[in-house]
Write a protein that binds this DNA or RNA. Structure first.
Lengths: 261, 261
DNA sequence: CGGCCAGTTGACACCGTTCAACCGCTGTGG
DNA sequence: CCACAGCGGTTGAACGGTGTCAACTGGCCG
C-alpha cells in the first residue's frame, strides 16, 4: 500500500491527516502515525479536555468541537479559542498557563493520542511532521490573533461574519467543507460567547447576515453563499499555509528539520 | 568571574537575562549568550520591526516598547499584542502569519540578535535556554489570551486596569518595577487602541481609576498603589512562571532538554 | 399532551462613540 | 521676551450600538 493510497482513503475520515497534508509532504513515519489513530478517547458534551494545573498528554481532535473558555465570578463567560477536528491539544504546551481558562467539549468528541507524534518530532525522526507542526502552530497563533482583532476592532455584524469565515478556512484544511457548506453544530448562544455579545444580539446579527445573503446556518449546517463578498464585508484575510511553508523554507531551510516554539 | 556575578551585575541593565532568570537556572552557555548582547540595533519610534511576508532574524528587545497592530482600510487600528523589554521577536516563528499585522516601535528601541540563542536551543547545546524559552512561550500565549479575554468580557474600566496589571507583571520579570511604580512611555491614545475604546473614553476611565486609587500614570511613570484591590477590581489572575516550570518538570521531565511548539 | 431548548421579537436603559472645544505644557522662531 | 504651533490630555453634549428583560414561537422528545 503506498502512502498516496492511505492519504486518499483516510483523509476524508481523518482530519488530522488531511490537515497535515496541507502543511507538508508527509514522510512514511509521519503518514503511518497520523493515518492510524491510537488511544482514541470519547468525551461527552460539556466534558473537560484539560484540568487546570494538571498537564495532560498531547492529543489531536478527530471529531467534535471544543472551546477554551474563561469564566468570571459573576457568570460572564468568554470563549477565547475554538478546537476543531484536526487541531492539536497540549502538544509541546504542557507547561500550560494556569489562568488561560479550561477547554470544554461543545459537542460530543473523539480525540486521539499524540504522544508518539510529539516524540517523533522531538527526536528528529520525522522532519516532515516537525515542519507541519511548525506551520500548524503558526496558523493557531494567527487564529488567536484573529479572535483578538475581531473583538477589538470589528462591529457585531462583522465579528460574526469574520468568525464563520475562519471556521470555513479551518474546516477546509480537514476536507469537511463541500462547496459553500460545512457542518456547524453550535448554537447562537455559543456564537454570542465567542463574539462577545448577548445571545439576543447575536441572533439579530445572524438574521441581518442572512438577509444580506452572506451567511446562513440551521440544522447543523452552515452556508457561506458568497465568500468574496463576505470577506470584503468584514475585512477577512485568508491564510495560505502552503505559501507560508514555502516561504519559511526559502528563507530558513535549516529549520525544516526541527521543531520550534 | 562566576555566573552569579554576571547575573547580579547585568540583570538591571539586561532585561533578557533577568527574564530568563525567572524561568530557569541558566547554564554557562545560556548565561554568556544572554549576558553579552551582540548585533544591537536601534529602531526609531514608528519604525517597523517586521516586514510582511519577509521573515527577519530572531531578536530580543533590550529597551523600548513595540506593538503588533492590525489596521483596517477605514483607519480603525487595533493593538493585538505588546512587546516589552526582555521579550523575543520572531524566535522560531519565522514562518509567521502573513495577516497578523505588523510590529511597530511605539518608542525608540534597542534590540539584540538572538540567532545564536535560537541555534543553541535547536542543537541541544543549552538545555536551560530551551527550558526557559518554552516557559517564555507559554507566558506569551497566556498574555495573548489575556488580551482576548479583556476585549471580550471586561468593561472599559476593567480593561484598562487589567492591562496595566499585565504590564506590571511583565516588567517585574525584567527588574524594571520598583515598588508600585514602573516606567510607562505610552500615551492614552495607545491605551485606547489596545483596549478597543476611543481616546476620549480611555481618558475618562483612567481618571476614574485615579479617583479610585487603583492606577495613576503621568510623566512616563505608572503607579499601581494597591495591587490586591486592583486585581480584584478586574479579575486579574497573576502568573507564576517558576511554578509552571516546576509543574512541567514534575510531570514531563523528558521535555526539559528540548524546545517545543 | 407537556416540558424544554433554541430561536425570535419588542421596548427601554445604558455604555461608549463622536464631535467640538478648550487647557497646559513644550519647543521653536521672530 | 513673547508669539505661535503642536501634542497630549480634559470636558461637555448628543447620538447610537448593544445589553437587558420579558414574552412568545416552533420543534423535539418523553
Amino acid at each position: 500500500m503506498t502512502g498516496e493510497e492511505i492519504s486518499l482513503r483516510d483523509s476524508l475520515a481523518n482530519p488530522v491527516l488531511s490537515r497535515f497534508g496541507h502543511f507538508c509532504a508527509l514522510d512514511d513515519l509521519g503518514l503511518s502515525l497520523l493515518a492510524h489513530p491510537t488511544g482514541e478517547v470519547q468525551v461527552r458534551q460539556g466534558g473537560a479536555l484539560t484540568r487546570t494545573g494538571w498537564p495532560r498528554a498531547p492529543r489531536f481532535v478527530l471529531s467534535g468541537w471544543a472551546a477554551r473558555t474563561e469564566t468570571l465570578p459573576d457568570g460572564r463567560r468568554q470563549i477565547l479559542a475554538f478546537y476543531l477536528p484536526g487541531d492539536s491539544l497540549e502538544v509541546y504546551k504542557r507547561a500550560h498557563p494556569l489562568s488561560a481558562g479550561q477547554v470544554v467539549a461543545l459537542t460530543p468528541m473523539v480525540t486521539m493520542d499524540a504522544t508518539q507524534v510529539e516524540a517523533a518530532i522531538r527526536d528528529g525522526f520525522s522532519p516532515s511532521l516537525a515542519c507541519g507542526m511548525r506551520v500548524s502552530a503558526c496558523l493557531v497563533e494567527a487564529h488567536l490573533l484573529n479572535q483578538t482583532f475581531r473583538l477589538g476592532r470589528l462591529t457585531a455584524y462583522e465579528r460574526i461574519c469574520h468568525l464563520f469565515l475562519e471556521f470555513h478556512e479551518r474546516l477546509s484544511l480537514t476536507g469537511m467543507v463541500s462547496g459553500a457548506a460545512f457542518p456547524f453544530p453550535l448554537s447562537q448562544e455559543i456564537i454570542g460567547e465567542a463574539t462577545a455579545m448577548s445571545t439576543v444580539h447575536a441572533n439579530r446579527m445572524v438574521q441581518e447576515l442572512r438577509r444580506d445573503g452572506l451567511l446562513d446556518f440551521r440544522g447543523g449546517l452552515a452556508i457561506l453563499p458568497d465568500l468574496p463578498r463576505a470577506r470584503q464585508a468584514c475585512n477577512f484575510k485568508p491564510h495560505d499555509p502552503q505559501r507560508w511553508a514555502q516561504a519559511a523554507h526559502d528563507h530558513h531551510p535549516e529549520l525544516d528539520h526541527q521543531i520550534g516554539s
